[in-house]
Simulated scan of single mutants.
Amino acid sequence: MPFYNPFVRRESHSTGSIITYKVLTILTWLVVTVATIYYTFNAPQDDFKKGRGTIWGHNKPTPFALNPALTSIYWIVLWILQIGYVWHLFSSNAGYVQAAASVGSHFILNNLFQFAFVMLFVRGRFILAEVILVLNFLNLTCLYYFHNTHPRFIHTPVVSWPLAWTFVALFWDGAIAAHAKGSAARILANVAIWAIFVYGMSFLTTYRDYTMGFALSVLSASLGVQQFLIKAIALQWIFAFVIMGVLFVASLAIAVPGIFGQQVRFRSQEEPAPTDQERAPLLDD
């Protein structure tokens, strides 16, 4: 019996594999969503007494601390969009089902990694949590570069927004793990924060992916608000708002033409657009 690799890109999936994707997608989504909501308000009740706390209870005043309200809104919107993605697995349109199933393995793995991250983070295991984030970043990066031509109802909730969060979370959790609070840490953070700008612009210029630009602009706003609340006389929040503004305007410049009928595809500009007419309804809004 040949080895089945669920991460290989396929144009079609069997009935059995689609049923498996449906079950595992719903289960893993529920697990990570319930766990995240629970630990937002409750600390874990187990033997990790010294380091345990709620998610935002561990939001230490580091140079990469995020605003709880804005970041929570980001996640609520993402969960709602992911419900839409899950619904497409049950669609009567075979094209929608196949498109949704094609990213199912990575989405399930993302949910498992995110669950593991939350469980470690609330228990104060920040270094192990960072390892999980790195693994999920690799998972989502592979997903992006192998599946960047999907329609927005898949691309946004499954690919770009989870990837944007994971990238920013690497700095958030890493700063907490490193106890980055001193002047030297803030100077280093003033340089490191521009990685968000470079990362976002790379997707905007190469793939014209405004969903990634908008996601990173929201997370940059969250970073800027919290940094201002922590230390008003500082460069970090100024840089965060500059990054937010540039990414937002650049994303808007790409998104608006699509509203008026110009097609915007999530692919390299040098790569020709697909000619398969059967996929056209999927790629156009």
Rank of each mutant, 00 (worst) to 15 (best):
A253E: 13
S12F: 02
F241D: 04
G213K: 00
W56M: 10
A192M: 15
T20N: 09
F228I: 02
P68V: 12
L143D: 01
V218S: 03
G84M: 03
Y21I: 08
A280K: 11
A65P: 03
V131R: 12
P151A: 06
Y210P: 00
W161I: 10
Q277Y: 08
V198W: 01
A101L: 04
L133E: 00
F241I: 14
Y144K: 04
A221R: 00
F214V: 04
I193Y: 05
I243N: 04
V77D: 04
L66S: 00
Q236N: 15
I37D: 00
F167V: 14
G182A: 12
A180H: 02
F241R: 10
S217I: 07
I230S: 02
T211F: 14
F126A: 02
P2C: 06
V159Q: 01
V122D: 05
Q277T: 07
S92Y: 12
R279L: 13
V249T: 10
F197E: 09
V118W: 04
G51Y: 12
V23L: 14
Y199D: 07
R186G: 02
I73M: 14
W161H: 10
S222M: 03
T40M: 05
V225D: 03
L70N: 01
P151W: 01
D46H: 11
N190Q: 12
T156W: 10
L120T: 09
I83Q: 07
I37C: 06
Q98M: 09
